[in-house]
Computed example of a mutant assay.
Amino acid sequence: MSYSDQFFNAIGISGERGSVERFAKLSGVPAQRLKFYNHNNVLPSGSDLDRVIKGAGITELLLKLKMGRVDKSISDAIQFYADEISELLARYNPEAESPKTECKLEFETSLGKLYRGDCIRFLKSIDNDSIDLVFADPPFNLSKLYPSEIDDRLKTENYLHWCQEWLFECARVIKPGGALFLWNLPKWNSSLSSYIESFLTFRNWIGVDIKYSLPISNRLYPSHYSLLYFIKGERPNTFNPDRLPMQVCPKCYGDLKDYGGYKDKMNPAGVNMSDIWLDIPPVRHAKYKRRDGSNELSLKLLDRIIQMATKEGDVVLDPFGGAGTTYMAAELKGRRWLGCEIGPIDVIVERFNLIEKEREIIDSYRKNLNSLFPENIKHNREKLGLWTCETVRNPA
């Protein structure tokens, strides 16, 4: 998505036909590059910057301010003149927020409550410091059609400002030591991470290996989603990641990685989890998919996150209900949960009618965790004379 005409407005280019070409001739910066700077709200650099500010008759500082590009020099000046700037901004009175319908409780279980309504209105109704884990999977602003008919084609700055608004509320409701996990495209998370760092503590950028589009000409093939992990305060209240089985060949059960002389030091409970997750499946098979025409998250992903950052009885919040994966995982793992969905919730309610099938799915994931070699793998390696934890620690 593009930005509004912040660059053009800053340098005085109007919407009048031929105005870009006239400024290009005046400044010596090609019209195509001027359009690029405007479309992406990119601050020119080098010779282009010199030519633009000369042609527009403005200073570099004013150009940055009008484009909303605040660097360290401007940040330092704002801090130095904070008192004066605070008085000036107090006179700024943007349009009042339009009234929104209160969120309504639509579905309830013994552990959770699901509300129907706007996510920001929902978050504002929650008490400070009351949530152990927030997981958020917002719309990606890719012009998709949702049952809620939300606008998924916002100008870039409007989408980012909307995200900042609900992220601020998420931070407010998280307990000290609680966690925020934000699922989005790398493009958006790279912009949002610096904003979140102003009030939460960065822990990890997790890359989840799932191809989410077709190859794009002149770009690397996008094949991962970004999962940001932040906490409130200095250290997490809970950090209990699962350990993973060692990767072996699915046919011959041999090692896929050479551990050399360190086999006897391998933890029988499994391999430490890294910040690159290669084992989260896309939800495409009818057996696992709960809604037609839309992407949904793997139950395995939410099981892993909830296991890592909460303990039984903790409160998990997801302000974007979607297919209800977060709520189902929380319910199955004995966590209390709160949620909101602006669109229809029929799919989520129907999903809870299939809770025993969902339990079988999550149990099938968990049976292979926290063991270097799950039982079936261990059995086949023993038959083939391959090493196991017992044989390297107690050789015959």
Rank of each mutant, 00 (worst) to 15 (best):
Glu16Met: 06
Phe199Val: 10
Gly261Asn: 14
Cys170His: 03
Glu350Tyr: 05
Ser294Glu: 12
Tyr259Val: 11
Leu354Cys: 11
Ile58Leu: 08
Asp264Gly: 06
Lys378Trp: 05
Leu145Asn: 11
Asn218Ser: 11
Leu182Glu: 00
Ile342Lys: 01
Asp48Arg: 03
Asp346Gln: 13
Gly334Ile: 10
Asp118Lys: 02
Arg121Gly: 13
Asp209Arg: 12
Gly334Trp: 06
Glu169Pro: 04
Thr59Met: 08
Ile120Asp: 05
Lys175Tyr: 09
Thr101Asp: 11
Tyr3Asp: 04
Asp292Ser: 13
Asn9Gly: 14
Ile196Gln: 00
Tyr229His: 15
Leu167Gly: 01
Asn184Met: 10
Pro245Phe: 09
Val271Thr: 14
Pro245Tyr: 07
Tyr159Val: 02
Leu372Lys: 04
Asp318Cys: 03
Arg336Leu: 10
Arg291Leu: 12
Pro138Glu: 06
Glu197Gln: 15
Arg381Gly: 04
Ile174Leu: 15
Asn353Cys: 07
Gly321Asn: 04
Ser110Asp: 14
Gln79Ala: 12
Phe36Arg: 14
Glu165Asp: 15
Glu97Tyr: 08
Ser98Pro: 03
Lys113Trp: 04
Ala286Pro: 01
Glu296Asn: 01
Thr156Lys: 15
Cys163Phe: 04
Ile206Gly: 01
Asn267His: 09
Met1Trp: 02
Ile276Met: 13
Lys311Cys: 11
Ser223Cys: 07
Leu317Lys: 01
Ile74Asn: 07
Ser125Val: 05
Thr310Ser: 15
Tyr212Leu: 06
Met273Val: 13
Asp71Tyr: 03
Glu390His: 12
Leu332Val: 06
Ser19His: 09
Thr201Leu: 08
Ile280Phe: 01
Gln247Glu: 13
Thr109Ile: 06
Asn38Gly: 08
His379Cys: 06
Ser274Lys: 14
Arg22Tyr: 09
Gln164Glu: 15
Thr326Ala: 15
Gly270Lys: 05
Asn368Arg: 09
Ala56Asn: 06
Leu133Ser: 03
Asn376Trp: 14
Cys252Phe: 05
Lys35Leu: 08
Leu49Asn: 02
Tyr92His: 12
Gly261Pro: 03
Arg235Val: 11
Gln247Ala: 12
Pro344Leu: 04
Leu278Asn: 13
Leu180Arg: 00
Leu123Phe: 06
Arg336Tyr: 10
Asn240Pro: 02
Glu169Ile: 07
Gly178Lys: 00
Glu97Gly: 12
Pro268Gln: 11
Gly322Ile: 01
His224Lys: 04
Glu60Leu: 04
Pro241Asp: 09
Val42Cys: 09
Lys367His: 07
Asp264Ala: 11
Leu227Met: 15
Glu106Tyr: 04
Phe199Leu: 07
Ile276Thr: 13
Val173Asp: 01
Gln164Gly: 13
Leu63Ile: 10
Leu111Gly: 00
Ser190Thr: 13
Ala77Trp: 06
Lys265Pro: 00
Gly334Asp: 11
Ile126Ala: 07
Pro215Leu: 08
Ser86Asp: 04
Pro344Ser: 10
Pro241Asn: 10
Met328Asn: 00
Arg351Cys: 00
Lys257Asn: 08
Lys263Cys: 05
Asn40Ala: 10
Ile53Asp: 01
Cys103Ala: 14
Phe352Val: 02
Tyr288Leu: 08
